[in-house]
């Protein structure tokens, strides 16, 4: 089971954090700080895995963003790279060639997409199409509500 996922920039700024195990805020911050410094210090020719406490850390850099996951001992680190890649593909499809700014300004969308891919640190959907469909349908619900309230404001309904 994935215990948490962190997205951070090359400057070490946190862009997204998802915790599947309960941790007090202080511990989260410390873990994040530790891992961000460790990973940023690693050289590009080093492999994507490291052992950290009793977990395996899997990270991968996409452009200016690092995607970092903590998985348990019996989990498959090569597959974890695929999960990260799948998430990146989904972001890319959703935003249309995604960049760091998309994730900064639409961080809630990035969370929504992740929540349709994983639940409780496990994969819930292996079809890209289904994930995007679910997101699109929910976005549509939001838009409908917005239209509704605008019309209501202007006394049109």
């Amino acid at each position: 089971m994935m215990q948490f996922m962190l997205l951070f920039s090359r400057q070490g700024k946190l862009r997204l954090q998802k915790w599947y195990v309960a941790q007090p805020d202080k511990a989260r911050k410390k873990i994040t700080r530790d891992l961000v410094t460790t990973i940023l210090a690693r050289k590009p020719k080093m492999c994507s895995f490291l052992e950290w406490r009793d977990l395996k850390i899997v990270y991968k850099r996409y452009a200016s963003l690092y995607f970092c996951c903590a998985i348990e001992q019996q989990d498959n680190e090569l597959l974890c790279l695929e999960i990260i890649h799948r998430y990146v593909e989904l972001l890319d499809k959703y935003f249309g060639s995604v960049c760091e700014l998309d994730i900064i300004f639409n961080f809630e969308k990035a969370y929504f997409i992740l929540d349709e891919l994983l639940i409780g640190g496990e994969v819930q959907e292996t079809s890209k199409k289904n994930v995007l469909k679910a997101i699109a349908a929910q976005d549509l619900l939001q838009e409908d509500e917005m239209m509704d309230s605008i019309l209501r404001e202007h006394g049109l309904i």
Binding site: Q17, W19, A22, E108, F112, L141, Q142, E145, M146
Partner: peptide, 20 residues
């Protein structure tokens, strides 16, 4: 009752609350 509210509300719950 609004879906928009719920979506953000649940997101916030996942980030700000934990089991403690």
């Amino acid at each position: 009752p609004r879906f928009t509210d719920k979506r953000i509300g649940y997101l916030g719950a996942m980030l700000l609350l934990d089991e403690r």
